[in-house]
C-alpha cells in the first residue's frame, strides 16, 4: 500500500482516480485541483506521498511546471502523469522532467492500478 496524492483540475477525475487507487489498496492522502495547490499542500504535509498522479492541462499552474518543481523540491516523491494531452512533445517533456510514466486519458482502471503498482508496490 502506498500513500498517493491525486492532482487534476476535474473533480470527477479526482474522484475516479481516488476510488480506483483506494480499491487497489492504496491510500489517497491528498488531492489538489492544480499544480500550485499541489505544491502548497506538499509544503505543509508532514508525511509526503510516495507517488503523485499529475494531470497536465490545468489552470493556474500546469502539470509540467508542477512536475519540475516537485522533482526539484521533493526528489523522493515519484510522479506519474495522467493526462489527456498525449502529444509526443508533451510525453517526452514530462519524461525528461522526471515523470516515471505517462497514462493517457481516457484510461482503463486496470491500467492505472498496473502502472502505479510498478512504482509503489514495495512502498
Amino acid at each position: 500500500m502506498a500513500k498517493i496524492m491525486v492532482v487534476d483540475d476535474s473533480k470527477i477525475m479526482r474522484k475516479i482516480l481516488t476510488g480506483t487507487l483506494t480499491d487497489a489498496g492504496h491510500e489517497v492522502i491528498k488531492d489538489a485541483a492544480n499544480g500550485k495547490d499541489a505544491l502548497d499542500a506538499l509544503e505543509t504535509m508532514e508525511i509526503k506521498p510516495d507517488l503523485i498522479t499529475l494531470d497536465i492541462t490545468m489552470p493556474v499552474m500546469d502539470g509540467i511546471e508542477a512536475l519540475k518543481n516537485i522533482r526539484e523540491k521533493y526528489p523522493d516523491v515519484k510522479v506519474v502523469m495522467v493526462s489527456a494531452a498525449g502529444q509526443k512533445s508533451k510525453v517526452l517533456e514530462a519524461l525528461k522532467a522526471g515523470a516515471l510514466d505517462f497514462l493517457q486519458k481516457p484510461f482503463e482502471k486496470e491500467d492505472v492500478v498496473a502502472v502505479i503498482g510498478k512504482f509503489v508496490n514495495n512502498a
Binding site: S10, A84, K105
Partner: peptide
C-alpha cells in the same frame, strides 16, 4: 464530467494530430 469528456476527446485529437 462533460468537461472531462471534451478534454479526453481533444487529447486524443491532439495526439493523433501530433
Amino acid at each position: 464530467a462533460l468537461c472531462e469528456l471534451i478534454n479526453c476527446v481533444n487529447g486524443l485529437l491532439a495526439t493523433e494530430a501530433s
